[in-house]
Simulated assay, not measured.
Amino acid sequence: MENPPWDAHELTVGQVAARSGVAVSALHFYEKKGLIGSRRTVGNQRRYARDVLRRVAFIRVSQRVGIPLNDIRDALAELPEERTPTPRDWARLSSAWRGELDVRIEQLQRLRNDLIGCIGCGCLSLHHCRLANPADRLGALGPGPRRLLTDPPPAS
C-alpha cells in the first residue's frame, strides 16, 4: 500500500493499518470498543485523523503491559480530540497506571521465584504446596491461585 502524503489530514483504514502495523480487523475492533474514532465518507468508507496513529501505538503498548481495554479507553477519553497528544499528556496518563504496574511487576517476580515449587497454590493437589499453604489456609479466600492475587501467605 502506498504511504499517504506527509501532510494528509485523513487516512484510510488500510493506510492506518499499514503505518501502525495493526490489522484492519483490530482497528475495527478498537473503534467498536470506543478506543478510536473515524468519520464516514459519502461512500461509507472510514477516514481517520492522523492522530489515530499515536492512539493506536498507545493502545498496543498499554495492552502489551497488561492494561485492560476499559482502562485504556478511559485514559484515551481524557485526551483532546483531533490533537496529537503531547509528552505531558502521555506522562499524566502513564503515571495513573504506575502503581498498578508496580503491583503486577511484584506478582510476576513472585511467580518467577516460586515457579519451580508452586503454581500459586491454586492446584492444592501437589504435595509440595503444603509447604507454602499448610492446612489449605488460602482455600478460605476462594478458588484459584491466591498467592499471585494477594500478598504471600504468612510464614509458618
Rank of each mutant, 00 (worst) to 15 (best):
D71L: 00
A75S: 14
R98N: 03
G37M: 04
A75Q: 08
V16F: 08
N70K: 11
P145N: 12
I116M: 14
A135C: 03
P85W: 10
R146A: 13
V42E: 12
E81Y: 03
L115Q: 09
V65N: 01
A26L: 11
D114W: 06
T150P: 01
A155G: 01
R55D: 03
A57D: 14
L11V: 05
I67M: 11
G43M: 02
P134T: 01
D71V: 01
I119Y: 07
A49G: 14
W6P: 06
G37P: 00
N44L: 08
G66M: 00
E100A: 13
L131Q: 13
Q15L: 11
P145T: 08
A75Y: 01
G122W: 04
R60V: 14
D89K: 11
P145F: 10
L115V: 14
A18M: 07
S25N: 12
D114N: 12
R110G: 01
W90K: 04
G120E: 03
S95T: 04
D151C: 04
N113Q: 15
P153W: 00
R104D: 05
V103L: 12
V56F: 03
N70F: 05
A8E: 14
H127Q: 10
P85I: 08
Q109A: 11
W90I: 14
V13E: 03
L93E: 09
I72T: 03
V16G: 08
L148Y: 15
F58Q: 08
G139L: 15
P5W: 05
P87M: 06
V65D: 01
M1Y: 11
M1R: 11
L53A: 10
G34S: 05
D71H: 00
R130C: 02
V13D: 01
S156V: 11
D74G: 02
W97N: 00
P85K: 09
C129E: 11
P85Y: 11
H128M: 12
R64D: 14
S38F: 01
T41G: 07
P152L: 10
Q107M: 07
D151R: 09
D136P: 01
V61N: 02
E78N: 12
P5S: 12
L27R: 05
A140M: 02
